[in-house]
């Protein structure tokens, strides 16, 4: 079904190709009703990233190709796709990392419903985000201020690097391969958000019950694909998910912690904050 488009003769872009090199891309074309990969061959220039090539294809051969992008600097999180089967940002994937002459396959991220071509509907992630209780700070200090120390914020700062590209949500097999789990699983991006709040020195909301039941932390089997694909190199599994899992253990599974709570009569909601 692959339609190989002809490389247009002449034209500004073709002549601009210094070494006369071309690249062939296999891009998914279609919508929720169906579709197929189509091949396009365009001139390649030095310094190009995958998104540049996609734009060139759009400009020269497939004006109706749908692709979402914005910053071209790896900061807006819009251009997520699967490049040779690996979830990546198109704008941060340099063409010189591929073997010359090899066809490159670009498909939309799989875990969310397809709208058209490379564009998917990622609203699942925003719905899940609405379920996270907001930051609820402690009362002010007597002098009317709130204080946090560097030691306390170091941990959560990492989580604020998230650009919401949802590559981690896309690669997570819990929902990628098991659609039925979408009901009961928030996904790694939301675990990062939850960790940013749960580990926050000033926050007073307790999200452990949410983590166990609604967010489905137990579904995660810590296989670390989210960490592998995160373009911001957030240690999602080691620094967000596992610390949260350990807190859920203390609250729900650890018999000694349970006995200690009963004996001391301490409110577990407050116990952990101090």
């Amino acid at each position: 079904m692959a339609a190989v488009a002809e490389r247009p003769a002449g034209g500004p872009s073709a002549s601009a190709s210094a070494a006369g090199q071309t690249v062939t891309m296999r891009i998914w074309r279609g919508d929720a009703a169906g579709g197929a990969f189509q091949e396009y061959t365009v001139p390649l220039e030095e310094g190009m990233v995958v998104l540049d090539v996609v734009h060139r294809i759009q400009a020269m051969q497939a004006n109706d190709l749908a692709v979402r992008w914005n910053c071209k600097a790896g900061k807006c999180g819009s251009c997520s796709a699967e490049i040779n089967g690996k979830p990546r940002l198109m704008c941060m994937t340099r063409m010189n990392t591929f073997e010359p002459g090899k066809v490159i396959t670009i498909s939309p991220i799989r875990t969310f419903p397809l709208i058209k071509d490379l564009v998917t509907d990622v609203s699942f992630n925003f719905q899940k985000a609405k379920e996270v209780p907001a930051f609820k700070p402690k009362p002010l200090d007597p002098d009317g201020k709130r204080r946090m120390y560097q030691e306390d914020v170091d941990r959560v700062q990492e989580f604020h690097k998230c650009i919401e590209c949802f590559l981690c949500q896309n690669v997570c097999h819990v929902i990628r391969d098991h659609e039925e789990n979408k009901q009961s699983f928030a996904g790694p991006r939301l675990f990062v958000r939850l960790a940013a709040l749960e580990l926050h020195p000033l926050d007073t909301n307790d999200r452990r019950e949410l983590l166990k039941y609604k967010a489905g932390l137990g579904f995660c089997n810590i296989t670390k694909c989210c960490t592998e694909v995160c373009p911001e190199h957030i240690h999602i599994t080691d620094n967000a998910i596992i610390p949260l899992k350990e807190r859920v253990v203390t609250e729900f599974y650890d018999p000694l912690a349970w006995i200690a709570r009963k004996l001391s009569g301490r409110d577990p909601r407050k116990g952990i904050v101090e």
Partner: peptide, 30 residues
């Protein structure tokens, strides 16, 4: 094979992660 590698499909058809026995026991690692 759950999952065998990133972006490679799980082999098992259904998946409960560590929410059910026997993998629930992993919670007692400490």
């Amino acid at each position: 094979w759950s999952p065998p590698a990133c972006a490679v499909p799980d082999a098992p058809k259904s998946y409960q992660g560590e929410t059910r026995f026997p993998f629930l026991i992993q919670n007692l690692h400490r």
